[in-house]
Design a protein around this nucleic acid. Structure first.
Length: 166
DNA sequence: GCCAACGTTGGC
DNA sequence: GCCAACGTTGGC
């Protein structure tokens, strides 16, 4: 089987008041379903492209500070988001039926917390990251691909190597 | 709090 | 199918 050409790295946005990396750390197995995504482009990634083992950066939006707060792994690939037909859920979509799912989610498990987080302000200082989707003005996509190069740079920012000390 | 960017809705 | 109006996202 030929290798998948699709991204192996992703970034998920979350508002920490709704769901933060602390919530993920406290969850059973430090694992959660990523439900409530209600955008078709993001849905397509969740349903069709994101695979078990893919890496996911977690980003806190509408927060102080704005930052990438850690990495997670996909532990379950796309499956129907049942909150869509749960009338008690804040993500309830009355037009959805379980027989014809529209919205999808994946499961992610916490892998590595960034201490301290990698702040947006720091990302903006990096010329190599100027193409990053997250940093484009007006970019609202809450599930977005990350290139291997972006992934590598961000992990380095999170864990500076010893040789940079003096 | 402001507002730009984007997505969705609905009249025509 | 067009597009204006409106709602939401999310940085600043």
């Amino acid at each position: 089987m030929p290798p998948r050409s699709a991204s192996r790295y992703w970034l998920f946005k979350t508002e920490p008041e709704t769901f933060s990396i602390n919530d993920l750390a406290a969850a059973p197995d430090q694992t959660t379903c990523w439900n409530g995504v209600r955008n078709y482009q993001a849905r397509n990634f969740l349903r069709d492209t994101i695979a078990v083992g893919d890496g996911v950066l977690l980003y806190h939006s509408n927060a102080q500070p704005l930052a990438i707060v850690g990495t997670t792994r996909v532990v379950r690939a796309g499956y129907p988001d049942s909150s869509a037909w749960d009338s008690r859920s804040p993500y309830h979509d009355p037009s959805c039926q379980p027989e014809k799912p529209v919205w999808y989610m994946v499961d992610i498990q916490l892998e590595n917390r960034f201490e301290p987080p990698v702040e947006r302000a720091r990302l903006l200082q990096m010329p190599q990251l100027s193409g990053m989707l997250l940093l484009q003005r007006g970019s609202r996509l809450s599930v977005q691909p990350v290139t291997p190069e972006e992934w590598r740079i961000i992990l380095e920012l999170a864990a500076p190597t010893r040789k940079s000390r003096r």
